[in-house]
Design a protein around this nucleic acid. Structure first.
Length: 287
DNA sequence: CAAGAATCCTGTCAGC
DNA sequence: TGCTGACAGGATTCTT
């Protein structure tokens, strides 16, 4: 679902259609999301010009004239639907509706309501309670192999679980953790504390590679995920292990690099459940 | 204190 | 065909 690359892609789409525009009308259809949206949310947006966007982990901020920022989290099923003037079909579960000065309607749609919306002064974005405790941005300057190793030091939990902890590194979810561990040839079962030195360096690089590739691909997609421009299922995701249980690793990697390379001897991609979540991995290459 | 389980919610899909 | 149950997963809260 929406992890860092998807959030980045959604945000870029919104940036392209809203930045510089004035919000003619704002309506909060329902406020009972993961956390209650503040009552004054719609009023704070209406009539204001959108100045720009900024992402942090799986959150992003929409900055408005007047010094207010809107915090958005997509949760599991959150997306943005764009409707041009005349396109009047309203998707189900549209919780926030914004009409731009050019007549384009932007809707925050989130069936499961695991997402959230909040307001804060633009200068206090990083002090927000959902943001303040986050670990380093994996594509930012603060994310290093040494820092990652330090964050993992002494942890008795499997590396899979540790990487889902947003305090260790911010923005990974279940999909890209599996992908990064595969790329780094590290078993999801390995104890987090044993990932250090060269292995930590490999993992840090793999995390960055996997995220960069996904952003470049325009974000990956699952089922009901929709691009901000309204297009649906517009590209083939390129996950190497996620969702590929039983597929031979070599075939899965055809044309995408050497991968397992065991050919017919490849045991195939396995799925297991860790901390209630699926992990996909190749038992031959990941140690 | 840390690690894991339970929890929120609803659409989708497999199986009968 | 229609129903039921399992499943998906982000992040907080609760339990061990």
């Amino acid at each position: 679902m929406p992890e860092l690359p998807e959030v980045e892609t959604v945000m870029r789409g919104l940036d392209a259609c809203l930045t510089g525009k004035r919000i003619r009308r704002a309506e909060l259809a329902r406020a009972d999301l993961r956390f209650p949206a503040p009552p004054g949310l719609a009023a704070a947006l209406q009539g204001r010009q959108v100045l720009g966007f900024r992402r942090r982990a799986k959150y992003f901020f929409m900055r408005l004239e007047g010094g207010t920022s809107l915090l958005v989290h997509l949760g599991m099923s959150g997306r943005f639907a764009i409707a041009r003037p005349g396109q009047n079909d309203i998707p189900a579960h549209a919780h926030l509706n914004l009409v731009s000065e050019d007549g384009v309607t932007v809707r925050f749609v989130d069936p499961r309501r695991f997402g959230c919306l909040d307001l804060m002064p633009t200068g206090a974005e990083d002090a927000h309670r959902l943001i303040a405790g986050l670990g380093p941005e994996p594509l930012g300057p603060d994310f290093t192999a040494a820092g990652l190793a330090a964050a993992l030091e002494g942890k008795q939990t499997p590396i899979k679980s540790a990487l889902l902890d947003q305090r260790v590194v911010a923005g990974l979810g279940n999909i890209y953790v599996s992908e990064a561990l595969f790329a780094a040839a590290i078993s999801p079962r390995r104890l987090a504390g044993s990932v250090r030195g060269q292995r930590a360096a490999r993992l840090a690089a793999a995390i960055q590679d996997v995220l960069r590739a996904a952003i470049a691909a325009g974000g990956s997609s699952l089922r009901d995920y929709v691009q901000p421009d309204g297009e649906l299922g517009y590209f083939q995701h390129a996950w190497r292990v996620y969702g590929r249980e039983g597929e031979p690793c070599g075939a899965a990697l055809a044309g995408q690099g050497p991968g397992c390379g065991a050919g017919a001897a490849c045991p195939g991609i396995r799925r297991m459940v860790q901390a209630g979540r699926s992990s996909f991995f190749c038992p031959r290459v990941q140690r």
